[in-house]
């Protein structure tokens, strides 16, 4: 049996504390190559922010991490292990659907359009996956859901339907729903882009709390201020490659690449 973190660490030179490890990640849709070799290291407990113009491949990269998209080249390990494959005898065997689901359940994902299940109440949204994927007893799932709702400040909305909530509240419920699976890492795909400006702050506050609690996060965002304040590293992508990466404060204050400078001057 292979694909254990310790073996992969030796074989691919994965650092000891690595949560997301990408080397030469490529992704094509037919003739169109969206990712042209992306290398990223996200240490456990850190926050990586990815910025870049539309079509730069940043969302696609995020969806590769939890195997919503299959790579066409390179390797991508989460907590030292492949998500969609088992490595045996130098071959990557695609894992069965149920196994993939179990591994995916450890990687939380948040979307620009929240994607709360619209036919379920807030509580039902939060306990659906813990009960049916994790086989958690309903009572325990409900108790944990209430705790999480308190954490995102929405305890009184427990029996509401998503459409009765504001966008900011929906995104906070979505964060609680992802946290209910006790993920190792959270992926955010432009979590505040669909929000009215005055609702952005409440979502960023919840994300700030998570970062302070030590959650590993990969955040695709247009909120440069958030990246500067919370990010441990900033990654600027354009045209399917990483143009520049480094410490957010240094990079924003003094971008090295002219392309980065041009992009930052537009969004700042």
């Amino acid at each position: 049996m292979s694909n254990t973190p310790s073996e992969n660490r030796v074989r691919f030179g994965v650092p000891e504390n690595s949560m997301v490890f990408a080397r030469g990640v490529r992704k094509s849709y037919g003739q169109l190559e969206v990712l042209k070799g992306v290398d990223i290291d996200v240490p456990t407990g850190s926050v990586a922010c990815i910025i870049g113009p539309s079509g730069s491949g940043k969302s696609t990269f995020l969806r590769c991490i939890n195997h919503l998209e299959k790579l066409t080249g390179g390797i991508l390990l989460v907590d030292g292990a492949f998500v969609g494959y088992d490595l045996r005898d130098d071959r990557l065997y695609e894992v069965k659907d149920d196994e993939l689901c179990q591994r995916r359940a450890e990687i939380g994902m948040l979307f620009q359009s929240f994607n709360l299940f619209s036919h379920m109440t807030v509580m039902e949204n939060l306990i659906e996956a813990p009960i049916h994927v994790r086989r958690m007893p309903a009572e325990q799932a409900k108790a944990e859901a209430l705790e999480l709702l308190a954490r995102v400040g929405l305890s009184e909305k427990v029996d509401r339907y998503p459409r009765e909530l504001s966008g900011g509240q929906q995104q906070r419920v979505a964060i609680a729903r992802a946290m209910a699976m006790k993920p190792k890492v959270l992926l955010f795909d432009e979590p505040t882009s669909a929000l009215d400006p005055e609702l952005v702050g409440e979502v960023l506050q919840v994300m700030r709390d998570l970062a302070e609690a030590g959650m590993t996060m990969v955040v695709v965002t247009h909120e440069i201020g958030f990246a500067r304040e919370i990010g441990d590293q900033l990654i600027f992508m354009d045209g399917g490659v990483i143009v520049e990466q480094g410490d957010p404060r240094e990079m924003i204050a003094n971008p090295q690449s002219p392309r980065t400078r041009e992009f930052l001057s537009k969004v700042l």
Binding site: R104, A105, M109, F111, S113, N115, F117, A129, H132, V133
Partner: peptide, 21 residues
């Protein structure tokens, strides 16, 4: 909307459950 089944996939729900639930 496709986001509904996408969110369910991301939560680790298998295809048959996504359809049914």
């Amino acid at each position: 909307p496709s986001g509904q089944s996408e969110a369910a996939s991301a939560l680790g729900m298998p295809y048959r459950n996504i359809l049914k639930r």
